[in-house]
Design a protein around this nucleic acid. Sequence first.
RNA 1: GCGCCCUUAGCUCAGUUGGAUAGAGCAACGGUUUUCUAAACCGUGGGUCGGAGGUUCGAAUCCUUCAGGGCGCGCCA
Length: 576
Amino acid sequence: MNIFKLYKDKIIDIIKSANKKGLIKLPDNLNSINVDLPPKKFNCDLSTNVSMVLSKPNNKPPLEIAELLSNLLKKEDKYIEKLTIEKPGFININLNSEFWNFFAKDILNEKNYGSQKNLNQKKYLIEFVSANPTGPLHVGHSRGAILGDVISNLLKFNNQIVTKEYYVNDYGNQILHFSKSVYFRARELLYNEIFPTDNPDLYPGDYIKQIAKNIIDQNPNLKFDDFDLISENLTSLSVAESLKMVKFNLNNLGIKHDNFASETQIVKNKDVDKVIKKLQKDNFVYKGKIKAPEGEDNSNWIERQQLLFKSTDFGDDKDRPLQKADETWTYFASDVAYHFTKLNRNYDVLINILGADHAGYIKRITSVVEALSGEKNKLICKVSQLVKLIKDGKPFKMSKRKGDYITVEDLIEEVGKDATRFIMLNRSNDAEIDFDFTKVKEKSKDNPLYYVQYCYARISSVFRNTNKNINDKINISKYGFDYSKDEINILKKIAAWPRCIEVSLDKLEPHRIPVYLYELSSDFHSYWNMGKDDITKRFIDKNNLIKDEKLVFLKIVANVIKNGMNILGVETPEKM
RNA sequence: GCGCCCUUAGCUCAGUUGGAUAGAGCAACGGUUUUCUAAACCGUGGGUCGGAGGUUCGAAUCCUUCAGGGCGCGCCA
């Protein structure tokens, strides 16, 4: 049940019938009518702006309309205890205890309470992480990884079909340098040769040694005498080793992709040629020149003819190159081909999770997807902003080339999977995060994760102490509870849960979920502590029994926390 | 130069298609435990929502403009 929707529908019914009777005129658009939780100070359960919206078309002050509507509303709805009209014209609604019983009963055993019902089921392909397979994942990757995973969970919670995909950039110069680095590390191990640290293209990181060692151990016949001879073989072995690391890291974060799509495969299949032909046919590409960006050192810039995609047709600020100087395809070209394969797999919606450094890429890739599919908004891109690492109060930069960066493994070891996920998710993906290592480690007790988990653990303890299992279904034969004001306060928060999911889903912004769970937990902890002064607020009575109304209340809160934490991919321990 | 993101309390951040006197945590100060988990709670102080215009019943939220910070702008992916 979604009480906002419920009352919005009721109100719309009422104004429609009042309109039929000629009592009021309706505006063109009923969408701006809201039913919301009012600010706490008003001491009521719901509020609506309907009279402000109707004010203009009726040419009457909102207060006058509020008067009329509240009379109609009160007649119509048996759950309304009291209606008050406030200053500009808000109608504030207090619901009676019958309503809260109805509410509790309705959601107690509702499957996935909070999920959006009556939503069309669509097929989603979500691409995330897609980090170059040249080494383990670092902290920066983890944010996008977690975001993608949680958006997937959120979609699934709302009955959508989701495929999680990782695009493996196992082709191109970087991969060649990577493979060469493995080659030199192998020679270092085999022949005591010194690794050429002066070559800036190579990857000096220690993990390369491990990759080299694994490859030597598993391929005794491979001869490290001439890179060119073994290049292809070594590259695919190195990428495979690197992907093992990546998968290990993802597993550390609790993430599992359904598919790994290979760029090499796309190149081998000539998918790039095919898609370029299609774009040519539809007149989206041409030979032209690109101007150098201003305000930078462009002394090395040589303007020349190259094959370009007309992304400016779709609002981009430049057309984008598909070919390099040597006429091989750019990264963009193979990505276009990759996205064409996505389209050919018949998904309804494509989602890409990108790092902040790739945000400039969004316009061109959404443009090309629009060009290929003929559909706007077929591809939705979400950006996960930078994670600024701070250690001992000082920021430090990570560098993949130098090899001095913090991996996901380090992170998990120090902070833990759940805390990492919760902290990364606790703020908007559009805002940068200061991730203070020393702070997170030191103050792990102040971590919001534990605050929410503790709430669940407290509820569990009540079940445990009354010889019940928190995971069991509760069957109540008779409702008619008399919930206190403080309990209703929490039920109101519970009632807002579907709204939290609705907005998170609509905007694909899951950070609202941990924020909500924290607030709910706060309300609950607060209530719990009231039991110290007021015995009636305790859950377990002197005879070690719990009343049905308290049991239902606890179960409802526990369900929401559990559902929310499941979406976040975080545990809810029953004991802490 | 252009594009995208950010700017809200001392610090880190929420703020639901525009809604009522803008909210949390941390930090500071003062309190709460013979009783269901104190990893908790209660209280106090703290604001020109970066600046300036505009849109309207109503703006932190939308538009314009300016300032500051970040990311990016063919031959890396």
